[in-house]
Design a protein around this nucleic acid. Structure first.
Lengths: 246, 246
DNA sequence: CGACGATTTGACCTACATCAAAAGAAGTGG
DNA sequence: CCACTTCTTTTGATGTAGGTCAAATCGTCG
């Protein structure tokens, strides 16, 4: 979250405090909150990989967003009666939870932290909107390229990687659920991306061999991630490092 | 916004005050804020119809959301350096603006109003997620049915209509931009919806002849709109009226 | 009335889906 | 360490929803 603004020492202390308590280890493919339940807490992914998804009547699953370390899952969700989607892990992950009452307090009484959460929400919305464009107007090949490029960037943003390789413990079927394609077609598009020398996959480790090429195929414009920081805020070190990539 | 929670008299007064100032009349197809600009204010649609959209490199336009009267456009957007999408009217509309500084103040110092804005943001996100499912997993016919049903419901929510007819001054090309289909195909699907006796369109007035039928075709589950109000909040009159429909 | 945008129709084409089966990986237990 | 199951990836053949292109009709507004 510090991507967006520098916290005061006090804010940072409060956040570190909160996230170090109430941690829980999840296995792969476990639900954190389920559609229809009320979620009294909010959750933050600390390590691993999670996603928002929804199961459809016909048994299909649509993954609507990936959640990488540092991502808060719905900072305001506790005010709702029930979840309109589920959140689950894709890989073994550590998730921490913060009680809704504490969140409410933070959002109303700690402007610095509230601002960071707002930024995160806005970024989330941006990502959702971009996915709509993706599905509406990009073909399968660019769509998958886009998704991979976005994950690369987000993993770099939060500092879990430093180069072009990242752990992405996901199956092609998951990717199909996220892109609205069939697993078969995802497979063919991935083959093409590999043939073109854009990416390489060994086991769960994905490597972007040609970031510029992948970005071009994806027609990726990172403005929706709002990496340019808030107005009138000094740039963080992490931000500077990231700028090399985009 | 009162859909979500009842305001105190004081909150209502503040909001009425703010929205009655700084109103501006827009024609059809005018931009309110453009991608790339910084938006120091937030906007609220008072009458008419607006949308969020993005122009793509190839000239295509993707409409990502419709904004009906009462909808705040990005309550927190003023904290960002620049917009990642544009907001424009589809029909002549009255839009009011609230300065970012005032918004910040409201969000931090008026819990009642802040809560209503949070709810609106969460609903927005829900709508975006639903659109992703729509494009990813529903066929063209249900997709259009879904969109129409959602608009009907949202118009009823905010009380601009009382029955199954509503002003929806949109072209089939707009609808194509919103669904990720071609105008030609939108046309054929609309014909089918009319043949099946589900809807009728005369000019800019759309009528849902068979709400239950349309809802079934759309496989519409309204949980993502969170009409069930907040936890532990008494139900509003508007909410009760609406419940008949869903 | 003329003109320009919106809707409609028809013919044809392609990206992706569907179905089915083979070939690899990878985990499990003996 | 090997047989066995089960999940994942890959390949091939075939089908179809929706795209593309082009022209005709319909509305509406100056």
């Amino acid at each position: 979250m510090e991507q967006y603004r520098l916290f005061s020492d006090e804010d940072r202390r409060v956040l570190n405090d909160l996230t170090s308590k109430r941690q829980r280890q999840y296995g792969a493919r476990e639900d954190i909150v389920r559609e229809g339940e009320h979620s009294p807490d909010i959750h933050i992914v600390l390590t691993g990989l999670a996603c928002r998804y929804k199961l459809l009547e016909n048994g299909n699953r649509q993954i609507m967003a990936f959640l990488v370390p540092g991502d808060p899952c719905d900072s305001e969700i506790f005010i709702l009666k029930e979840m309109d989607h589920s959140i689950g892990t894709l890989a073994p992950s550590v998730i921490c939870s913060i009680p809704g009452s504490t969140m409410k307090d933070l959002l109303l009484n700690r402007p610095g932290i509230a601002l960071a959460f707002w930024w995160s929400t806005l970024q989330d919305e941006g990502i959702l909107r971009e996915r709509i464009i993706d599905e509406g107007r990009r073909d399968a090949y660019s769509r998958i390229a886009f998704l991979i490029y976005e994950v690369l960037l987000r993993m770099r943003m939060v500092g879990v990687i430093d180069d072009e390789s990242f752990e992405f413990p996901i199956t092609q079927a998951d990717l199909a659920d996220a892109t609205g394609l069939t697993p078969v077609h995802v497979n063919r598009m991935l083959q093409r991306l590999r043939e073109e020398g854009l990416i390489a996959v060994q086991g769960k480790t994905w490597t972007v061999l040609n970031p510029a090429g992948l970005r071009k195929v994806a027609r990726f414009d990172p403005n929706y991630l709002h990496l340019d920081r808030a107005r009138d805020e000094p740039e963080s070190e992490a931000g500077k490092r990231l700028r090399g990539l985009i």
